[in-house]
């Protein structure tokens, strides 16, 4: 075999491997149930999330959004049913490719922002300092500020800086807009749209503030009492129902 032919063959194999990753769903949930005592937080969820999409996970408090995200992140195990993330059960391998941004802030208050980014890099080696710098500027945050002195909106923006600087294949964001001032919300949405790389990334964003966030979704999933009440492509739903996702939220979930 000549050198060029061998090169071509290797190239084709590499491309096929990339396509296989891309075509594999980012997340597959089959008859997923999670019980807390007598309560069913998730009650038989079947859901496939394609790679390369921004997905809105919509529902009221207590509908099961956070539980679902934590199970996908591998932080909770299901009571029954199966979970696959990039074709694998959640574990050490998937955690390297998944970033979970919880709603609550879990950062040490005494750290400065730059110290915190260093600290985060020590257990997420994929975190890029260059990206963190750019995002920090965009989010209007100063490296020397102490975490404990930040406003709620600034803390939310900081969480996004650290999450987006990792450039993970699957990002799970739990209520990134809840209780935050409008300018911070606008910044966060703009950063999400600007940093999203559809070639390899998938975003799942839980929220009950649908109006502002809905233009960034490809796909929406409405959760009610641990069940999928409705799901579909956002543009197709707009076309077929003549309603916004916010209006559907009211209709489906009230």
């Amino acid at each position: 075999m000549s050198v060029t032919m061998q090169g071509q063959k290797q190239c084709q194999q590499a491309l096929a491997a990339v396509h296989a990753i891309y075509e594999q769903p980012a997340v597959e949930l089959t008859n997923l149930v999670k019980r807390y005592g007598l309560k069913r937080a998730l009650d038989g969820v079947d859901l496939t999330i394609e790679s390369g999409k921004v997905v809105g996970l919509l529902g009221h408090n207590g509908s099961g959004k956070t539980t679902m995200l934590k199970i996908i992140a591998g932080l909770r195990s299901p009571s029954s049913g199966t979970v696959k993330v990039f074709g694998m059960a959640p574990g050490v391998k998937t955690k390297q490719r998944v970033a979970f941004l919880p709603e609550v802030n879990a950062y040490y208050e005494w750290m400065t922002i730059d110290y915190l980014i260093d600290f985060a890099k020590s257990f997420h080696p994929d975190l890029s300092w260059e990206r963190a710098e750019v995002l920090k500027k965009f989010m209007d945050l100063k490296g020397e500020s102490k975490v404990g002195a930040l406003s709620k909106g600034q803390q939310a923006r900081l969480k996004l800086v650290i999450g987006l600087a990792r450039n993970a294949d699957l990002m799970l964001l739990d209520e990134p807009l809840a209780g935050i001032d409008p300018p911070s919300r606008a910044r966060i949405l703009q950063a999400l749209v600007g940093e999203f790389r559809q070639e390899h990334q998938t975003l799942i964003i839980s929220t009950h503030e649908v109006k502002e966030a809905e233009p960034i979704f490809d796909h929406v999933v409405f959760l009610r009492e641990g069940k999928v009440a409705l799901q579909g492509n956002a543009e197709a739903l707009r076309d077929s129902t003549g309603h916004s996702m916010e209006e559907l939220f009211g209709e489906v979930l009230e």
């Binding site: 390369g52 921004v54 606008a186 703009q190 749209v193 600007g194 233009p215 960034i216 490809d218």
Partner: peptide
């Protein structure tokens, strides 16, 4: 596409379409 997506705060797949 990315510039329009950021300006309009709309999903880049939607702008691409």
């Amino acid at each position: 596409i990315r510039e329009v997506a950021e300006m309009a705060r709309v999903n880049p797949n939607t702008i691409a379409r």
